[in-house]
Simulated assay, not measured.
Amino acid sequence: MTTNLKRYIISAGVVVSLASGTLFLGLAQANDQQNQNNQPSNTHPKPMIVQIGPEGKTLLRGTVSAVAASSIIVKTWGGDWTVNIGSSTQLTPGGSMSQFKVGDFVGVQGMASTSGTFLIDATLVRNWTAKETEQNNKQEINKLMKEVSPRNWEGTASNTNAAGTSFTLTIDGVAYTINVAANAKVVNRSYFTIGLGDIKNGDTVRVWGPSSNNTITAYVVRDVSIAPQ
């Protein structure tokens, strides 16, 4: 063991290496690369990390324990770290302090400050918990959009009204209110234009449009019971 390199392996798996003025605190993982830390991920990185380079450049990951107007406290190896967030600090995925909550898992890049203990002036703060929430919301919205996306429906018409813009269509035993859009195409079996007044109770009708809460906004209405004249 050389005089300028000392390693202490702590039972918790924390490695503290002091080599050429570089301080590394974190979990001992041989394949952990900093460039991987900067890549988007569907789930936040699990290990807490503190890395401080010889020029003071810092990479930190941990859990938010407090949120102030222009700083957050991050609990990670060594204890609580104060992360100063200025006007030039990049916040992601959201662009404001309001995204940070106690318990969020965050990653911080910046410079270790010499004006205080465990103090970082951040250039980038990534909220991994908020990013996961954002991705989950996108998935739920996409699922919802698929559920209410336009599709073809077929059923039996009732409550028809020549002067109105809606009627009832019973599909597989469920009654749907059909609101006919102003620019809707209303046609018969052979796709000739007809009026809503031509649709009679009991007719088999096909509509195309999105559904929400048993209401369908129809952009195409086709009465397949009406044969061409």
Rank of each mutant, 00 (worst) to 15 (best):
59 L>Q: 07
205 V>Y: 01
22 T>M: 08
217 T>G: 02
25 L>A: 11
143 K>M: 06
84 N>Y: 07
224 V>D: 04
148 V>M: 02
200 K>Y: 10
221 V>F: 01
103 G>A: 03
62 G>V: 11
61 R>P: 04
24 F>W: 11
107 G>P: 02
117 T>S: 11
50 V>H: 03
116 G>M: 09
187 V>C: 04
109 Q>H: 08
10 I>Y: 07
173 G>C: 12
207 V>K: 00
151 R>T: 14
190 S>T: 14
71 S>C: 07
137 N>Y: 10
73 I>H: 05
128 W>M: 13
40 P>I: 14
163 A>Y: 00
157 A>W: 03
118 F>C: 05
5 L>R: 14
151 R>W: 06
215 T>G: 01
20 S>K: 15
180 V>Q: 01
77 W>E: 06
166 S>N: 15
223 D>C: 04
92 T>D: 06
39 Q>T: 14
119 L>R: 09
173 G>F: 03
76 T>R: 01
201 N>L: 00
146 K>F: 11
138 K>V: 12
93 P>R: 08
173 G>I: 14
126 R>E: 14
109 Q>M: 07
176 Y>S: 02
37 N>I: 10
120 I>L: 05
123 T>Y: 02
144 L>T: 09
43 T>M: 02
104 D>K: 06
28 A>Y: 10
47 P>F: 10
47 P>D: 13
49 I>A: 04
39 Q>D: 12
184 A>D: 09
50 V>Q: 00
105 F>G: 02
78 G>D: 06
70 S>N: 15
146 K>R: 12
145 M>R: 08
53 G>P: 01
74 V>H: 01
62 G>A: 09
74 V>I: 08
39 Q>L: 13
121 D>A: 15
117 T>D: 14
185 K>A: 02
145 M>V: 09
197 G>H: 06
63 T>C: 00
90 Q>S: 15
79 G>F: 07
200 K>F: 07
78 G>V: 07
133 T>Y: 10
97 M>G: 10
84 N>R: 11
30 A>M: 08
96 S>E: 15
183 N>K: 12
167 F>G: 00
31 N>D: 13
155 G>L: 09
179 N>M: 04
125 V>I: 11
64 V>L: 05
206 R>A: 08
123 T>L: 01
149 S>F: 08
